[in-house]
Amino acid sequence: MAQQPDYDEGDAVFRVRPYALTGGRTRANLDLPLETLVLCSARGHSVLNQVGLEQRRILLLAIEPISLAEISAHIDVVIGATRVLVGDLVASGFLESRSGSYADQPDIKLLERVLDGLKAL
């Protein structure tokens, strides 16, 4: 598999404002729930100086696991546009992501873990 994703480093596509970047798209390629957690990947680290300002900010915020909702609040961009930006970074492999089950409620095992976690607080 190719080392680089299918865009040119320094390509203008990563240097435009969020709404211009979304090019009229209102949905990300990936349907990311608000609480989706993302983490900057090794590839994300390696492109920090080559991506646009907004993407760089997001990657830096994601040095520790952080949710889509938190990113939206920190960069002060509405959820929808943030989802597109983050979705593109996930699709490019610059962010690793993890979502809960989008369609269903959490299963018994997960609920039990949450219960234990809350009890331990």
Binding site: L30, L37, L39, S67, V90, G93, L110, V114
Partner: peptide, 17 residues
């Protein structure tokens, strides 16, 4: 690359809400 990129990463905590 998106299919593999979107696979849940074990390094990332599980979010619940």
């Amino acid at each position: 690359s998106s299919a593999t990129a979107h696979a849940p990463s074990p390094k990332v905590p599980i979010p619940v809400k």
